[in-house]
């Protein structure tokens, strides 16, 4: 049986770990709310943007745009892998990395070159360790992404797609379903699906006869990159909210486990103490009996 002082030391250490995990849990809970509010705050822009896109698409029907065009040959693609800067968030990062790895392996077996853009230190470190140097690595943005970050990521892929250097762009991120549930998701950024534009056009207000300045095609040309940026921004925000959600869940179970451990350690401690006392009594009784004889 372990000695009493050792058990007590363990209890103190587990207690202090529990304090840390509980604090992290509470911090994550607070941050989820903020991240969710940010997603909400972005909704009006996204909605208005789709409305404008719909109106423009209705008038520029059948307009060709390099970002809408599927390339005939598929030689090189870019994968944007969105993770967090910090760990202790359960399977949050490993889900994304596994999904990225699967995609890369699948594409490479078809002879496609895959470039990687990483968001978050975790993805950066993971790919470098595997000898894949990201074409761009973002860090310290995954906690509070801004639209400018999204724009900057878009600036790496949009021109490349336009000039046929790249034939497909994907983003892999954690979709925020609710506080307790996040799931990794693969989203195709480029080419933009024709259906997106068509659906937006169908939802547009038919009655309004819009004028466009300079003209519908030029506005569409400017609008499509913005659309891609909005999608990236949304993915970054969802990932931020998911990170806090995943961390909260992970820290909650860590806290629960610590409580359980303390209970079982206290039980062992009490049992050991009781055993020691019993032992002492037995010795005293034994000693007294020896004197009587």
């Amino acid at each position: 049986m372990a000695n009493l002082r050792d058990i007590q030391k363990r209890i103190v250490s587990v207690e202090s770990t529990k304090q840390i995990t509980r604090t992290m849990e509470m911090v994550a809970t607070a941050k989820i709310k903020k991240a969710q509010a940010k997603i909400e705050a972005a909704r009006p822009y996204a909605l208005s943007m789709m409305e404008v896109l719909g109106n423009v698409a209705r008038f520029a029907k059948g307009a060709e745009h390099p970002l809408l065009e599927e390339h005939v040959e598929r030689k090189r693609i870019v994968v944007v892998s969105v993770t967090s800067d910090r760990g202790l968030a359960g399977a949050f990062n490993s889900n994304i990395l596994r999904m990225s790895e699967d995609l890369i392996r699948k594409e490479e077996s078809n002879g496609v070159v895959v470039d990687v853009i990483t968001v978050g230190k975790k993805a950066g470190a993971y790919f470098r360790y595997r000898g894949i140097e990201p074409i761009a690595a973002y860090r310290d943005i995954s906690d509070k992404p801004t639209f400018l970050d999204a724009k900057s990521i878009a600036a790496h892929v949009i021109p490349a797609y336009t000039v046929n250097d790249v034939d497909g762009v994907y983003i892999i991120f954690n979709r925020f379903k609710n506080v307790a549930e996040q799931s990794p998701e693969l989203h195709k950024l480029l080419p933009i699906e024709q259906s997106v534009v068509e659906e937006a056009a169908d939802d547009a207000d038919i009655a309004a006869e819009y004028m466009f300045e300079p003209d519908a095609e030029s506005v569409l040309e400017l609008l499509l990159p913005t659309y891609v940026e909005t999608i990236i921004y949304r993915a970054l925000m969802e990932s931020a909210a998911s990170e806090h959600g995943a961390r909260r869940t992970a820290m909650k179970s860590a806290t629960d486990n610590a409580s359980e451990m303390v209970t079982s350690l206290s039980r062992t401690y009490n049992r050991a103490r009781q055993a020691a006392i019993t032992n002492e009594i037995a010795e005293i009784v034994g000693g007294a009996a020896a004197l009587e004889d």
């Binding site: 404008v52 109106n55 423009v56 309004a208 006869e209 819009y210 004028m211 466009f212 300045e213 300079p214 519908a216 030029s218 506005v219 400017l222």
Partner: peptide
Amino acid sequence: PTIDGEIGILPLHSPLVSA
């Protein structure tokens, strides 16, 4: 400030989309 120059928008303006 539209890309073709500054525009003033008053009520009853006709529908317009501009960069």
